[in-house]
Amino acid sequence: KYSDMIVAAIQAEKNRAGSSRQSIQKYIKSHYKVGENADSQIKLSIKRLVTTGVLKQTKGVGASGSFRLA
């Protein structure tokens, strides 16, 4: 599940300011076997996790910027 992968990526990075979408994508692609549409799936999952309150956006708008666990 992409949401689990995103949470794992943010936990692994341990950046106080949060993790960027690009760094999350890079982590997921190197640690998991994902399909061609992974980028758009990650983007959608990040937006969903922010609206449900699992992630907090520290910089930027939408799916860009930095995110950390709430």
Results as ranks from 00 to 15, higher is better:
Y27E: 01
Q22R: 09
N15P: 02
L55E: 00
S19L: 10
D4G: 07
I42Y: 02
A12H: 09
M5R: 01
Q25G: 09
Y2G: 00
T51I: 13
K14G: 14
G18D: 04
V54W: 04
E13M: 15
V50R: 01
Q41R: 11
Y2A: 01
K59A: 09
A9T: 01
L49V: 00
V7T: 04
D4H: 12
V54P: 00
Y2R: 01
Q57W: 15
Y32K: 01
S19E: 02
I6K: 15
A12R: 04
Q25E: 13
Y2Q: 01
H31I: 05
V54H: 05
K56Q: 11
A12Y: 07
G65Y: 15
G18Y: 04
A38L: 11
E36S: 13
K59Q: 08
G18R: 02
S66R: 15
A70P: 04
T51K: 14
S23Q: 09
V7S: 02
K29F: 09
V34F: 03
R68F: 14
V50P: 01
A12C: 14
K29E: 07
K59R: 10
Y2F: 10
T58Y: 10
Y32N: 02
I42Q: 01
S23H: 07
Y27A: 01
S19H: 04
A63I: 09
F67N: 03
S64C: 13
R16L: 10
R48G: 06
N37R: 07
Y27L: 00
S64R: 10
E13F: 09
L44D: 15
S3E: 15
S66F: 14
I10W: 00
Q11N: 07
A70F: 06
I28N: 01
N15E: 05
T52L: 14
G62A: 06
K56W: 12
K26H: 10
V61D: 12
I24Q: 00
M5Q: 02
I42R: 00
K59N: 09
K47V: 10
K14D: 11
Q11P: 00
Y32I: 03
Y27N: 01
S19D: 01
I24V: 02
S20M: 03
E36P: 14
G35D: 10
D4E: 13
L55I: 10
A17G: 12
K43V: 12
K14H: 13
N37F: 07
T52V: 09
K26W: 15
T51H: 12
V61R: 13
Q57N: 06
G65Q: 12
S45A: 15
K14C: 15
A8W: 05
Q57F: 15
S40N: 11
G18T: 03
L55G: 01
G35M: 05
L49M: 11
K29V: 07
Q41F: 10
R68I: 15
G35L: 15
F67H: 04
L49W: 02
D39L: 07
V54F: 06
L55C: 02
A63D: 12
K59P: 08
K59C: 14
S64N: 14
G18C: 15
A12D: 05
V54D: 15
G60D: 05
K43R: 11
K26Y: 07
Y27K: 01
I6Y: 00
G62H: 06
L44C: 15
A8R: 07
G18V: 04
S64P: 10
G60C: 10
T52S: 13
L69P: 04
K29Q: 07
V54R: 05
L69W: 04
R16E: 12
F67G: 03
I28R: 00
K59T: 09
N15T: 07
L69Q: 05
V50S: 02
K47S: 09
A70H: 06
G18I: 02
S66C: 14
S45C: 15
I42M: 02
L55K: 00
D39S: 07
S64L: 13
G65T: 13
K14T: 07
A8L: 05
G62D: 09
S19K: 04
S20E: 03
K47F: 09
K1Y: 11
S23E: 09
G62S: 07
Q11G: 06
G65A: 15
Q11R: 14
R68C: 13
A38I: 13
Q41N: 06
F67T: 03
V7E: 02
R48F: 14
G18M: 06
V34R: 01
I6Q: 00
N37I: 06
G65I: 15
D39R: 06
D4V: 11
S66A: 10
H31Q: 04
L69G: 03
N37V: 05
R21F: 15
I46H: 01
I6S: 02
T52M: 14
Q11L: 14
A38E: 05
V34Y: 03
L49Q: 01
G65H: 12
K1D: 13
I28F: 00
Q57K: 08
E13I: 13
S66D: 07
V7P: 01
K14V: 05
K1T: 11
L49H: 01
K43G: 10
R16Q: 12
K33A: 11
G18S: 04
T51Y: 10
A38H: 05
S19N: 02
V61C: 14
E13P: 03
A17Y: 13
S23N: 07
R48V: 12
S3T: 14
Y32V: 02
D39T: 07
G53K: 06
S40P: 05
Q25C: 15
Q57A: 09
H31W: 03
G35Y: 05
G60N: 07
S23F: 11
K56T: 13
S30W: 04
R48I: 13
H31R: 04
L49T: 01
R21Y: 15
I24K: 01
R21A: 14
V54N: 03
T58F: 09
K43F: 14
N15V: 05
S30F: 07
I46G: 01
K29L: 10
G60K: 07
K33Y: 07
H31M: 05
D39A: 09
I46C: 04
H31Y: 05
A9K: 01
D39K: 07
M5S: 00
Y2I: 10
E36Q: 11
K33C: 11
